[in-house]
Amino acid sequence: MSRGRAMAALPPPRSTWDAINPLRLLGELSETRYWMYLLLLPSALLITAIVLFPTVYGFQLSFTEMRLNRPAGNGAFVGLKHYQRMLADPIFWLSLRNTAVWVTFSILIEFVVGLVAALALNRNLWGGKVLAVLILVPYFLPNVVAGNMWALMLDSRVGVINDILVNIGLLQEYKAWFADPNTAMATAIFVEAWHSFPFFTLLIMAGLKGIPTDLYKAADIDGAGAFAQLRLITLPMLRTIIAAAVILRVIGLVNSPDLLLILTQGGPGRSTQVLSLYAFQNAYSDFNFGYAGALSVVMFVLLMLFAWAYIRLSKVNQD
């Protein structure tokens, strides 16, 4: 029975009030094909308000003069001025390069450590459940706490890490990890990886539970070793989960400056300056929201391109 016919089947209004009764009209509307759009309307409005509007506003900001401490010229359309400045801005290019290093190495370490941890926990060893909770602890720590904790542990005067490394003979003297441009970024990546590898562990563990054990039994019978099983069964079966985890972590790493803000503030001498931190400084130290908006748009476009390329290359869509 079509909806049109269903509408036609409704009894005619019995009075004038019945003809304008909102409940009756609503009832009639619910029998039409427009009803589904009406049901989607609240969600559409909500998404527009909390996702679309800020995104469009961010784009608009990047074409606008908006310096909060220079109210006189604010709001004026400046076209591509901020993007032109960006092309000639050496700090932007340095930040872009540092962002690539920061994201690439953080993701690599987090993925490898997260995978190893998930595989170990998936073996149902004695105490595995307690270990699983302990492994997740770093991820539950706020960035501010994790950052300050590691800054203290790596301190060149009172840091316990230096103490251990000197006592076991790996270091001759205490090292100022964040004051040396050769070690500042690597140390920050280490802290970031420590903090976020449980994210991979968590998702990969969930994925491992979904892989049929028959596959491993068959592989055993065929003589496949542990590494071959990992390469030919586990990783391909986890492809979708790994793709999702990598994309989510890359977005998090590109967008969030808080750990670097605590550990180095981009120093020493901009050696850990990344795009998100640069945008943050432009917005909240220089109050240049126009330029900060343009930097954010570039980050947004880069992330979209990355996600698109990664999904295509990892062939997730073929699953």
């Binding site: 100022a176 004051a179 020493p268």
Partner: peptide, 14 residues
């Protein structure tokens, strides 16, 4: 101290 480039309030005071 060689750590000067990263020394903020806490580091200098301690």
């Amino acid at each position: 101290p060689p750590s000067a480039a990263n020394d903020g309030f806490q580091q200098v005071i301690s």
